[in-house]
Amino acid sequence: MGILSWIILGLIAGALAKWIMPGPDPGGWIVTIIIGIVGAVIGGWLGNMVGIGGPVTGFSVGDIITAVIGAIVLLFVYRLVKSR
């Protein structure tokens, strides 16, 4: 998928990450969605590097899972850093 697709998917992944990991975030929903976008882009890039993702024309279940996992990991790291 192209970078624009990962950004759009990141919006969804950010919302899903917030739903999966509820709790107070230092930046609220807006920062969580931005983290979702960045997490989805990073997750997609890493997925392509290890061969579990690839350039496709539409969204697949694997792309969504990769984006959500990337967003959750980045949200977890963000909470650790901001809580200190």
Rank of each mutant, 00 (worst) to 15 (best):
G2T: 07
L4V: 11
S5C: 12
S5D: 10
S5I: 06
W6Q: 08
W6I: 01
I7K: 13
I7P: 05
I7C: 14
I7H: 12
I7A: 14
I7V: 15
I8S: 13
L9R: 03
G10C: 13
L11S: 08
L11T: 05
L11Q: 10
L11I: 13
I12Y: 13
A13R: 05
A13H: 06
A13K: 08
A13F: 13
G14T: 01
G14S: 09
G14W: 08
A15L: 15
A15W: 14
A15P: 11
A15Y: 13
L16G: 02
L16W: 07
L16A: 13
A17C: 08
K18F: 09
K18S: 13
W19S: 10
W19N: 07
I20T: 04
M21R: 08
P22A: 03
P22Q: 01
P22R: 00
G23P: 15
P24M: 15
P24S: 15
P26A: 02
P26E: 03
G27M: 04
W29Q: 02
I30T: 06
V31W: 11
V31D: 03
T32C: 12
T32G: 15
T32V: 05
I33N: 05
I34M: 13
I34C: 14
I34K: 00
I34L: 15
I35P: 00
G36V: 10
G36A: 14
I37F: 12
I37T: 08
I37G: 09
V38F: 15
V38H: 10
V38W: 13
A40V: 09
A40T: 03
I42P: 02
G43Q: 08
G43P: 14
G43F: 11
G43I: 01
G44V: 03
L46V: 11
L46T: 01
G47F: 03
N48D: 07
V50K: 11
V50W: 14
V50F: 15
V50E: 07
G51M: 10
I52Q: 08
I52L: 14
G53K: 12
G53P: 03
G54S: 10
P55H: 03
P55W: 03
V56W: 01
V56L: 12
T57Y: 01
T57M: 04
G58H: 04
S60F: 05
V61I: 13
G62W: 02
G62N: 03
G62T: 02
D63Q: 11
D63T: 02
D63G: 15
I64N: 04
T66W: 11
A67T: 05
V68K: 09
I69M: 09
G70T: 02
G70H: 06
A71F: 09
I72C: 14
I72W: 09
V73F: 13
V73K: 09
L75T: 00
F76K: 06
F76W: 07
F76R: 05
Y78V: 00
Y78T: 00
L80Y: 07
L80F: 11
V81A: 04
V81K: 02
V81G: 08
K82G: 02
R84Y: 05
